[in-house]
Design a protein around this nucleic acid. Structure first.
Length: 141
RNA sequence: GCGGGCGGCCGGAUGACCGCGACGCCGCGGGCCGGUCCCGCGGCUUCGAGGAAAGUCCGGACUCCACGAAGCGACGGUGCCGGGUAACGCCCGGCGGGGGAAACCCCAGGGAAAGCGCCACAGAGAACAGACUACCUCCGGCCUGCCGGGGGAAAAGGUGAAACGGUGGGGCAAGAGCCCACCGCGGACCGGGCAACCGGGACGGCACGGCAAGCCCCACCGGGAGCAAUGCCGCAUAGGGAUCUCGCGCCGGGCUGAUCGGGAAACCGAUAUCGCCGGCAGGGCAGCUUCGGCCCGAGAGAUCCGGGUUGGCAGCCAGACCCCGUCCGCAAGGGCGGGGCGAGAGGAAUGGUCAUCCAGGGGGGCGACCCCCGGACAGAAUCCGGCUUACAGGCCGCCCGCGCGC
RNA sequence: GGGUGAUUAGCUCAGCGGGAGAGCGCUUCGUUCACAUCGAAGAUGACAGCGGGUCAAAUCCGUUAUCACCCA
């Protein structure tokens, strides 16, 4: 119930993006195993619903104006239906949050957890991802 | 109404906003000489998980490899009969056996007189025919109940899952299918059925245990691998190696060339021969053109090894497809006619949030009703036909039994 | 997509048609002032689940579950 501010921030961001000179932040998908392994060596943040890993890419790896995001739901999450549902909810959360709170040139990996990722309230996932991104971006830079 | 059995079907509904994937259309930009061509972006319409998509237990389609469209062997599988099917280990109908009061349900159900093997413990004996104990009778001995010997007979045997058919009667010294009745067994033959099989049965006098999901025999089936198959394009590395085939059209190099005889061939022998050396013979030496043949390199093709790429396209979704009607068939199913299009991704799309309703559970209230919780099993990956396994709840039809009413 | 193997006591394993076993561990007793060692005694399983064939199944057959491994 304390989450309407987030909705207002998302809603208020869109006109500025539409009118902004640089356009919205582009989000590409992370697909290669090597990228996942590099992200796993970097900063991480645990929340009840997921695990977030993030790193700033080295020069020349990818388009520096875009952010990238990947999703991992292993067999520990459950059967195929449970894994698909967890990954889709994480994707929905990332699509809502990353254009606002993400940074260009960064890779993010969201890892699903058994039970909670598919079960907990959507607003809680949104808030947790925003808070986790702030904690990771905060101390550095 | 209650209880039971069988078959079929559904497996939340509607709507809103923000998103995802695909086909098509439109617009913009770029590539191209150009294009109904290709790429990117945006908009719109339409479509977008299942009855099991699952397990991978079978059968096919399709593709590649091997090959003689063959035979034999090994290995694996199937196994009552008839039918259905592209095919099947599936389905339908029937037979036999078993369960149930019934509707109905269940069964890996060929062959044990082709052969081998096994049958623990117990028991006299475990597979085929007899030995042992006990039985009857005769003789002999002695402390009259036993011992020894001869003969008869195959009924009896604390067992065991299974034991020289069972019960009763006659008969006998005691007995025995020795004889009789019933039951069981084998059974020529007869009748019905396409068949499995069913019914009857002269006669035999009883001879033929179980296990083949032990080996095996018989009949039938099976070449191997799998869409990460396979084909094409691009990038990149090496511009490699091995083997085989074709083949002298171009180029380079080498060998060879007349006649006769022998020989499988290599080759051997004889005769003839342009120029030079040589007096002659024998012998030796050198050279050119054209044409023909052979070999090697080179060339073309195939396979393998080594090395490189991890990008794109095709395969990839109209099919043994679905629905309706009709005809044949008991049925599975098949014929004909009409209508329909129902996902095609590629580290992989179906998501998020909300509202109302429909099922379900809990609580409150006499009640209308209110509040809370909350959607079973489960996610396409080349495609079909089956099987098996998981599954909240609900709907429809038929049948059996019991009770009540008319 | 295709294939192979395993599941037996708390742990590691043997057993391949008729008795369910070994080592370690556990409990009790003895030895010692006490502990370890050592000695003696004892407990422990529905042989992964279900169904089937056999007189009889851990063993044979089918199926299900879980785990491990191999090939492309």
């Amino acid at each position: 119930m304390s989450l309407p501010p987030e909705d207002d921030a998302t809603a208020g961001r869109q006109p500025t993006e539409a009118g902004g000179a640089g356009g919205r932040l582009r989000i590409d998908r992370l697909r290669r195993r090597a990228d996942f392994l590099r992200a796993a060596q970097a900063a991480r943040r645990t929340t009840p619903g997921f695990l977030l890993q993030a790193r700033s890419r080295a020069a020349g790896e990818h388009d520096p104006s875009a952010a990238r995001v990947g999703f991992t739901c292993s067999r520990k999450v459950g059967n195929a239906v449970a894994r698909n549902r967890a990954r889709r909810r994480l994707r929905a959360v990332a699509r809502a949050v990353l254009p606002v709170a993400g940074r260009p040139g960064w890779d993010y990996v969201l890892i699903g957890r058994p039970g909670t990722t598919a079960g907990m309230a959507y607003e809680t996932l949104l808030g947790d991802l925003i808070a986790a991104l702030e904690r990771i971006h905060g101390p550095r830079r």
